[in-house]
């Protein structure tokens, strides 16, 4: 065995010893500690959202009218749109007929409390919810396809059919949220907090 061969053979052994030393040092360095104490104020993950991105998705409408878009609609246009886009599931005039099972729920009915079936007249506390829900999720077969003007018109038609607004009302962002719904007075917040009482 010449000197060169010895070096060649010794090299891997040295590497092995070096790696052992590194492993040993890092083991010593690993004293137990919890990382939760060192959480940063901000992680810096994610990115700021642009105004356009927010506008594209921000379609919700609050009971105080916040979020209602520009545009308007009336009962007459709404009646026509209802016939074209809603009647196939909710019935010709939105009412429940004896012996007929509608694919969707009945929307028009008696506005007195606790009457059946549950309709906009007797079970919807806020008019803004109609606009919000229809625009995001209806018609069921083409969700999100209605224009703001169309949603205003169908909302006007349904509120009129439930005898909540007059036939000549033009709905827009300024008056829709002011419509008082007959069912609002019925709604109460759940105040149960557990404990023995059955409520």
């Amino acid at each position: 065995m010449n000197r060169k061969t010895v070096y060649i053979l010794a090299f891997p052994v040295m590497l092995f010893l070096m790696s052992l030393k590194t492993a040993f040092t890092s083991m010593q360095a690993q004293s137990p500690s919890t990382d939760s104490l060192k959480r940063p104020a901000k992680f810096g993950f994610g990115r700021p959202a642009t105004a356009q991105e927010i506008a594209a998705w921000n379609i919700d409408i609050r009971p105080d009218g916040k979020g209602l878009p520009a545009g308007q609609g009336d009962v007459k246009k709404g009646k026509l749109l209802y016939a074209q886009k809603c009647a196939m599931c909710h019935g010709e005039d939105g009412t429940e007929k004896p012996g007929v099972k509608l694919p969707g729920s009945a929307l028009v009915g008696d506005t007195s409390a606790n009457s059946k079936p549950k309709t906009i007249g007797n079970y919807w506390p806020y008019a803004t919810t109609l606009f919000d829900y229809m625009r995001r999720a209806m018609p069921y077969n083409l969700p999100g396809s209605l224009s703001n003007n169309e949603v205003y018109s169908i909302t006007a038609y349904l509120l009129n059919a439930n005898k909540i607004i007059k036939a000549d009302v033009v709905l827009d962002a300024k008056n829709l949220y002011k419509v008082q719904m007959p069912a609002k007075k019925l709604f109460i917040m759940d105040d149960r907090k557990g404990g023995p009482e059955i409520k």
């Binding site: 919700d60 506390p125 806020y126 919810t129």
Partner: peptide, 12 residues
Amino acid sequence: SEEPYMTREETS
């Protein structure tokens, strides 16, 4: 938000 949205799934 300061107040609830009263969405369809929490009202009707």
